[in-house]
Design a protein around this nucleic acid. Structure first.
Length: 867
RNA sequence: GCCGGGGUGGCGAAAUUGGUAGACGCGCCGGAUUCAAAAUCCGGUUCUGGCAACAGAGUGCGGGUUCAAGUCCCGCCCCCGGCACCA
């Protein structure tokens, strides 16, 4: 065995061997328990960053650990390859997006391999390939036929100079990112998936996802935003209450109990009734309010009380069916057309927004719930009994709601109604680098899906891409087609799918990557995913679409489970110090931490920093997520070149638990490297001295038994930390303790050698999930054959944990005053007596009277004295 | 404003069920080795006082429960993340 740890030689050798023998390739095996471990697939941006490294490392530790538990583990990898950055790069570098993307994938695949992740590369999926997206197109066509797809107008950002639609990221301060022109809002027809049909199930199933973080479940619940209330109808009338035939107004409220307090109604500016009852002047005024609101800065929006409420009186009135009195109808932009009916009954006494509006326009306020004694000055939204409400008076809110609702139903005016905030998923993007939407527009037949046997609609990859206009929109030939129904001339849809479409089902495709269908029966062997690992930034959109799409596939008979993933782990960010210098204009120039020398005080605290190249001081900024703009990133490839992959792997999970952010530390990486070097040297020294004979646990002397016990304590802790708690940092700390104990072990008899051989073997097995290359090298060095990754995970022996003698803490009045050594099976009396005799304890007791003695067996004795 | 997560040494953190606060690592200090340095090894390191034994203080702040509180309860402050006129 090499006496010195040399990862630069070791790691490529071991990786080549893994590749050659396809050590991480798996096949379905009904006789073995499966485990599907998945990290969110990357966008091929060009190079791996530390965030990727840590994310994949977390999944890799779990995957390798589960494999060592004997499970059939699938861990795949692929590329979320469509998307805007490829278009941006294409403009900048004059390269077609496809070529840029494929080159990046090749580069990043090499980087991933160099880090030694246990991927089954035979299942690699690339979402921009027709072999992948054709199934997505087929699914879309079938959903269209099922009525789960529809087209309607929706607003987009339009750049009037470049004559193109912009993604939200391309709008900077209201202007187009390239042209600088003020962006316009335009209504254009777009495709939608009816996710709202699944809103109730998406909400209900969250309760069963107890392997998901509460934060994610809460965010999804809020996003779905279910509310229960009443929808009812009001007659439009004049000031005197004279009803106008044929005109009525539907409103939605969650508080039908407060209806007697309705003193006005509000329509959203886009409400259809607006055309009937308002003048163009009034509409123009409200449009101006909307523009003002849209132009209001972020700071105004965040300010307390949100935006000022503004509106206009339409001149029309509505009859409150509860009081039979007319109330004025206003037009205001604080009511949204997209939610409920786009119209509300306003009850300023019980709703703060209505209160603000009523105050601004001097409208009457009637309280219909009795507020507490000294309550005044705002809407009361709490519980209480109904007042000023005729036949509801005296009822508690919930009872009053039920009675008001029952009355509305009796009168035939309205009914119970559940509303969701969740909106249908708009999947159209007016971009080139995406999956073509397989639809045809026929002037005679309307929207017709591309016939299934003509799929896929292939996106041309060899294109001239100027960035102003999508090549498939610019090319009339690509667009031209015939209607599959009438055979007449028709046009293809030139929009492409939102890239969330591809990332909504890739996890299932990995199960049967070569299937001549979207999925085949292998999907049901692997699914659902047992452990999904990814960033919290996907808590809402991706993870909602992912769950939705799984249900679509279930209802299409493709999968049998209800949810795509049973456990979810959201990893923290990788953060680092920032350093900068400010020029005269206050513009900050950020300096990479690698070019900085810290200035430390006597205690080692950083009190300043200088730039190494000029020795002059720089400003210390906040600790922030690694990013280009803050210039605080480190390149994982450079680190691998310096220290080897295992050091980078080890550090990326050793300093904080996976869900917490990891603070990057150059010296921390060096510490991880030092540990591996020390371990290697210790094992090499041991191996050079010989393995010893057979380990006989029953014949160990005291010092040997201490080490043996430490081993089993560590086995118990590491298994629990990796398996149940997922706190890799504490698992690593425990292994380091064991390594320290083993390297300090005194004794060189045959029994010592046998014990150490056993301990080092176990250490190597425990470290395999984190540092698989070093572990394999050490395994061979210890004279063992085969792959250490195929060793079964060691279980601890409870008998080995037993101690004859324990240290017991002795407290006086709750403060530690001494420690005693006592037999493990000592009685309470024995412990108490021994505790009282401890000299320092005896000193504290002195002449005081002992009022009480608490004995916690095997832990502590607390003696309570008076005075 | 609402929802979620946090606040512990010089730093990253640990303390899993109310029972020794600070494991492990970094940094710093001292020593060994070396012509010297790097690397490596050994020792120390929450703060204050003390040569030491030890004592006092200490987990954002103020209260409380308990023999015992980082952990439980009440009231605040601050930081991070999400949502934000959804009736």
């Amino acid at each position: 065995m090499e006496p010195i740890y040399n990862p630069h030689q070791l790691e490529p050798e071991i990786q080549a061997d893994w590749d050659a023998r396809e050590v991480y390739r798996v096949t379905e095996d009904e006789d073995r328990e499966k485990y599907y471990c998945l990290a969110m697939l990357p966008y091929p941006s060009g190079a791996l960053h530390m965030g990727h490294v840590r994310n994949y490392m977390i999944a890799d530790v779990i995957a390798r650990y589960q494999r060592m538990l004997g499970k059939n583990v699938l861990q795949p990898m692929g590329w979320d390859a469509f998307g805007l950055p490829a278009e941006n790069a294409a403009i900048k570098n004059k390269v077609p997006p496809a070529r840029w993307t494929y080159a990046n994938i090749d580069h990043m695949r090499g980087q991933l391999k160099r880090l030694g992740y246990a991927y089954d590369w035979s299942r690699e999926v690339t979402t921009c390939r027709p072999e992948y997206y054709r199934w997505e197109q087929l699914m879309f066509v079938r959903l269209f036929k099922k009525g789960l797809v529809y087209r309607r107008n929706a607003t987009v950002n339009f750049d009037p100079v470049d004559q193109t639609v912009l993604a939200n990221e391309q709008v900077v301060d209201g202007r187009g990112w390239r042209s600088g022109a003020l962006v316009e809002r335009r209504e254009i027809p777009q495709w939608f998936l009816k996710i709202t049909e699944y809103a109730q199930e998406l909400l209900d199933k969250l309760d069963d996802l107890d392997g998901w973080p509460d934060s994610v479940r809460t965010m999804q619940r809020n996003w779905i935003g279910r509310s229960e209330g009443a929808e009812f109808s009001l007659d439009i009338c004049d000031e005197a209450g004279e009803v106008k035939p044929d005109l009525s107004l539907e409103v939605y409220t969650t508080r039908p109990d407060t209806s007697f307090g309705m003193t006005y109604c509000v329509l959203a500016p886009e409400h259809p009734l607006v055309a009937e009852i308002t003048t163009p002047d009034q509409q123009a005024a409200v449009e101006q309010f909307q523009k003002d609101a849209a132009a209001a800065s972020e700071i105004d929006r965040l300010a307390e009380g949100a935006l000022d409420k503004r509106g206009v009186f339409t001149g029309a009135y509505a009859l409150n069916p509860f009081t039979r009195k007319p109330v004025p109808v206003y037009l205001a932009d604080y009511v949204l057309m997209g939610y409920g009916t786009g119209a509300i009954m306003a009850v300023p006494g019980q709703d703060q927004r209505d209160w603000d509006f009523a105050k601004a326009y001097d409208l009457p306020i009637i309280r219909t719930v009795q507020p507490p004694e000294d309550f005044e000055g705002e809407a009361y939204t709490g519980d209480g009994v109904a007042i000023n409400s005729e036949w509801l008076n005296g009822l508690e809110v919930e009872d009053a709601k039920a009675k008001a609702l029952a009355w509305l139903e009796e009168q035939g005016l309205g009914q119970r109604k559940v509303n969701f905030r969740l909106r249908d998923w708009g999947v159209s993007r007016q971009r080139y680098w995406g999956c073509p939407i397989p639809m045809i527009r026929c002037p005679k037949c309307g929207d017709v899906p591309v016939p299934e046997d003509e799929l896929p609609v292939v996106l041309p990859e060899d294109v001239e891409f100027m960035g102003v206009q999508s090549p498939i929109k610019a090319d009339p030939k690509w667009r031209q087609t015939v209607c599959p129904e009438c055979g007449g001339p028709a046009e293809r849809e030139t929009d492409t799918f939102d890239t969330f479409m591809e990332s909504s089902w890739y996890y299932a495709r990995y199960c049967s990557p070569d299937a001549d269908a979207m999925l085949d029966e292998r999907a049901n062997y692997w699914l659902p995913v047992d452990q999904y690992v990814g960033g919290i930034e996907h808590a809402i959109l991706h993870l909602m679409y992912f769950r939705f799409y799984h249900k679509l596939m279930r209802d299409a008979g493709l999968v049998s489970s209800d949810e795509p993933a049973t456990n979810l782990l959201c990893q923290g960010m990788v953060v680092a110090d920032t350093f900068y210098r400010e020029d005269e204009d206050g513009v900050k120039e950020f300096i990479n931490p690698q070019d900085i020398e810290p200035v430390l005080d006597d205690r080692g605290a950083m009190v300043g920093a200088t730039l190494i190249s000029d020795g002059q001081p720089v400003e210390i900024g906040a600790v922030e997520k690694m990013s280009k703009s803050k210039n605080n990133g480190v390149d994982p490839v450079h680190l691998v070149e310096r220290f080897g992959a295992d050091t980078v792997r080890l550090f990326s999970v050793s300093d904080s638990p996976p869900h917490q952010s990891l603070e990057w530390s150059e010296t921390g990486v060096e510490g991880a490297h030092r540990f591996l070097k020390r371990l290697w040297r210790n094992v090499a020294d041991h191996a050079a001295g010989g393995a010893g004979g057979e380990l006989e646990p029953d014949a160990l002397n005291e010092g040997q038994r201490d080490l043996y016990r430490k081993l089993h304590e560590t086995l118990a802790k590491v298994g629990d930390d990796l398996g149940r708690r997922r706190t890799f940092n504490t698992a690593i700390a425990a292994i380091m303790e064991l390594v320290n104990a083993a390297s300090r072990h005194k004794g060189d008899t045959d029994a010592d050698r046998a014990l150490l051989q056993h301990v080092w073997e176990q250490v190597v097995i425990l470290l395999t999930p984190m540092v698989p290359h070093a572990a394999q090298g050490l395994w061979q060095g210890l004279g063992k054959a085969g792959d250490v990754i195929d060793q079964s995970w060691p279980e601890h022996d409870p008998a080995a944990l037993v101690r004859d003698e324990l240290e017991i803490v002795v407290q006086v009045n709750g403060k530690v005053r001494g420690r005693i050594q006592a037999p493990a099976e000592a009685s309470r009396e024995e412990l108490e007596n021994q505790a009282r005799e401890e000299p320092n304890v005896a000193r504290f007791i002195g002449d005081s009277q002992v009022r009480k003695v608490i004995v916690v067996p095997k832990k502590l004795v607390n003696i309570v004295i008076s005075g």
